[in-house]
Structure formats: structure tokens, C-alpha cells
Design a protein around this nucleic acid. Sequence first.
DNA 1: CGTTGCCTTGACCCGTATCAATGCATGTGG
DNA 2: CCACATGCATTGATACGGGTCAAGGCAACG
Lengths: 237, 237
Amino acid sequence: MKQDKIETAWSGAEKCETCGIRHLALFADLEHEDFVHIHNPIHEVVFKHGEALYHLESAAEHVYTVRSGLVKLVQYLPDGTPRIVRILRPGDLAGIEITTGGNYQHDAIALTPVETCQIPMTVINTLSEETPRLHRQLLERWKNALITADSWLTQLSTGTARNRVINLLLWLDANTTQADGSFTLPVREDIGAMVALTTETVSRIVAELRRSDIVSMLPGQRARIDRDELALLIEEE
Amino acid sequence: MKQDKIETAWSGAEKCETCGIRHLALFADLEHEDFVHIHNPIHEVVFKHGEALYHLESAAEHVYTVRSGLVKLVQYLPDGTPRIVRILRPGDLAGIEITTGGNYQHDAIALTPVETCQIPMTVINTLSEETPRLHRQLLERWKNALITADSWLTQLSTGTARNRVINLLLWLDANTTQADGSFTLPVREDIGAMVALTTETVSRIVAELRRSDIVSMLPGQRARIDRDELALLIEEE
DNA sequence: CGTTGCCTTGACCCGTATCAATGCATGTGG
DNA sequence: CCACATGCATTGATACGGGTCAAGGCAACG
């Protein structure tokens, strides 16, 4: 349990105003005057693949803006089986649920190397009362989280194993693709936890798609897919 | 498509202050001074079993506080199969997603006779800017909706058919039970749409539970369950 | 008394879980 | 530099849960 996340701390939020991803971050709409209301330190925190931003039982003190990488939100069935209920992308907010009190609702674990801004809950609360701009951003996050949750239910938890995996691949392609048109393919076990299938079934399906050249692998667990071909495979009811 | 919902209209919100379920409604925390900010009419609207509060493509103009009864939120798979993504209970807010702009995300359909207060979106928006009390209530609704969505994913969309149905029964019992300790059991088809099973499979499971006297039916589609026995059936992994 | 809507039950088959072995890459220590 | 361990992906054989198709059953209702 080595604590080797990298932290860059500064008091206040001077760097937020010049943040490279501010256009999609929580503070996107803030004006200069708003930033002076931030009194508590905001840290830049980096997590390696597999590290946890927080656990279910962690003290509910910070929310995290995801600057780069992917984060999985995990809940556990009574028998201990993990189920990934959502994936967070750059611009998303991890731990938003603690802003209205109560505890974290998931384990948040880095699927890839992840850069975050760690924001004290108190900053969110005081700031959101003083500026409607932040409030609007927060409401937007709530809404997006809920829409995503609903679409996971309909697209990734219903239908045949093949369709579920294909829908996930399409989602990953549409939402996590980088400049070269490829995206990081999670390990089979994680895919299984997202679409409620065993790793073997996932492996069989992915292997089959690779044999038909609809999915091709690149170095570093990265994949490229033929969107149109994949979409076609779902049509057949 | 007869429009036979019952409407009782009044301008402003005089009746809200004396509302019988105000303790769990959206306006729970509002003070007298807040109500004067309500200029648009709030209607009491009643829906019969099977009627829609709104559809995906409806004009996004109102949110609904559920005063009594149950409402299902439905989305559709590409092939048209309906999937129930959430059930709303008295005190819940239907259509909350339109308060940040955009369209309804579901069809909202009465599972039982339903009484609602139909609140114009504009009332929510102007009021929430002027009183932090309402804002806190809204955030609470967002949070609850998300927590519910996540728990449906882990409890009702994962595991064996039996466990999913049992978890749903336990949820219905815990959340929709009335004074006599019984609750309304939705038709098999709706249960199937909630837990992603066919009506036949649901029927078989419910019938088996009735034979073992763990579930007993009362007149009027109402059911009573043996909570402890049911909970035990899930332990076996 | 027939119709309608929903529930139940049966027979059969397919899809996915399960159990088990092997392959393949990456890393580590001798 | 090789030998072995480790972690993940793949593949196969088999069992079984749930889907599918089809036929009643039962209650409410006109």
C-alpha cells in the first residue's frame, strides 16, 4: 500500500485560470473574481494504473476533476463480485456525490495512468453558493452522470453477450479515442465487470472480432475498431 | 388516446404551503417568503394506470412531483424492447433532467394510479436561483436518482434470474410498502423489463416463491413477502 | 357466455458459465 | 543470457440456466 501518487500543491487556485483543460473542467465558466473565493489548497494528484482515488469507506473530503486518463467506479455485490457502474473520462468529476453530504458511493480506481485535480469539498460548497456559474456546471455533471448511468443499463446490461461487448467497444471508441484513432482496451476482466460477463466469454468475443479484422490490436493494449462493421453486427435482433 | 387526466389548477402555489406530503416533496424547506416567487400555475394532475406523464419526444416544459403511486421511467433498445431504468415513488421528481435544458430522457408511465403536482420548469429555475433551500432539495434529488441508478445496475442487472427477481421484490417491499405491510406487484412483463428477463422466467420464479409460501398474493395485485426468508435465498452464491 | 388480458406450465434448444489446460508476453533473479 | 515465475489471453469440453415457442388456465368484464 505504498503511497506513491505524485502531488503538486499550491495554495489557492492560481493555476486553474490557465489550466490547459479548463474548457472542459468544472471551473470552465468561472471569472477572475470567482477564483479569489478559493481559499483551500487544490492539489494536482496523479495515480498509476490500478491505484485508487478513493474507496467506499474513505473520508469524504475531496472531489476529483479527471484531467487525463480513465477512472472506473466500482461497487460490489453481496458475494464480493465487483461491478463497474461507470467510467469517468477527462472533464468528469469523481466523487460528486459527497457534495451533498454522506460518503463515497464507489471505489474509484485508475484504469490507466490518471491525472486529477483534487478539490476540497468545502471549496465546491462555498463556491457554488457564491457563483451561479459553478452551480450550473455542477448540475450539468449530475445530469451527465445520470444519463450515462441509464445508458449503461440499457446498452451494456441488456441483450446478448456479443451485443453488450460490441456496445462497450463502440462506447470506448466514441468516448475515449485519442489522436491516432485508437483507444486503450481494458483487460478482459474489467470489460467483464462492465457488461456483466465472465472474462472467458469476453475473451472469446474479442478474439472472434479480431479474427474477422473488425478489431485490431496495437502495441500497449491499444485497439482500433471498424465502427461501421461493428454497428452492423448489432442490427440483427 | 383520450386525454382524461384530471386537472385541478390554481394560480401561484397557495396550496403548496398546506400540502399533505410537503415533508417529502420538493418544496419541503421553502419558507412563506419563497412562495411569493412562484408566478406560474402549478397544477394537480392525476394519471391512471398506464398513462404517460410525458414521452421522450414531449415538449420539455414540466417536472412532476409524485404525490402518490408509482411511475416507471422507460428507455428503449435499438430493437424497440423497453427497459425500465428506474421506479419513482411519492416524493420523487419526474423529469428533473429538463431543468438544465434539453429533452426528457425517458417515457414516464404510471405503474399505478398516480397523483402529481405539475410544476413548470421555469418555476424551478427562477426559484432555485433565489432560494438555496430549493437548491439543496434539487441536489438531493439528483443524488438519490444516481444512487438508485447505480444500485439497479448492481442489484437488478447482475447475477442469476432468481436473485434479480428476489432483489426486486425486496426493493419493492422496502420502498413501496403501505400500511398493511403489502405492496403492489407489477405485472410480470414490467418486472421482466426491470430486471432484464422474459415474462415467462419471471412468472416461473414468482410462482415457485408462492408455492413455497415466501410470497403470498392478496386481492388487487398486492403481495406480501417473507423478508427474512427471501434474503436468505440470496446468500447462496 | 364469450372475450380479453395476464399468468402459468411444458418441451426444447441455445448461449453463457464453469472448469481446466495451454499459450504467450513480460519481468526477475541466478 | 537463460530459467522460471507471473499475469493475462485464448481455447476447449461440458453443464445448465434462461430464452423461445406453444398450449392451456383463470379472473375480470362487457
